[in-house]
Amino acid sequence: MSNFEGADFFAIATRFVEAIPHVSELGIGVVSAAPGSAVIKLPYQNKLIGNPDTGVLHGGVITTLIDTVCGFAAFSDVGDGLPLATLDLRIDYLKPATPGIDLLAEGHTYKKTKSIMFVRATAYHDDPNDPIANCVCAFMRGTKGVQFVGSVRKKDAES
């Protein structure tokens, strides 16, 4: 049984991204969240440019966005609040991001085992069917760290 039964996943996802200093520093925000999936958004910023001649964002920024959305998808699907760690992550770059436009990433789990969470993700601007990058990754469950407690439940959030 998930600890997040009846929880407000948008609120949990928002707390999840705000608790990560680097993610919060980049201004990444939650668009939508559900058990085992989420969509998050990175605002375009000049400091993240990887090609000064075109203004295209550095691929590494896409890695950060995708790692974060996959981490939340795995975390919210497991539901035990225990920490996870990225084991590996593969990204295919399908086309360059368009300069000046916010970047979205959608991630969802597709297999859960006792030790491992398998997650897929894409990064895109406005059409998930026209992705900039595709990703598959695996997370190790129950790694070192502190358990996430005090999940934001619907009744707590409303009171």
Binding site: H22, G60, V61, T63, T64, D67, L89
Partner: peptide, 12 residues
């Protein structure tokens, strides 16, 4: 350090 930053460093 964030895994995304470690990845960005390796790619760079």
């Amino acid at each position: 350090i964030h895994g995304g930053v470690v990845g960005a460093f390796l790619e760079s």
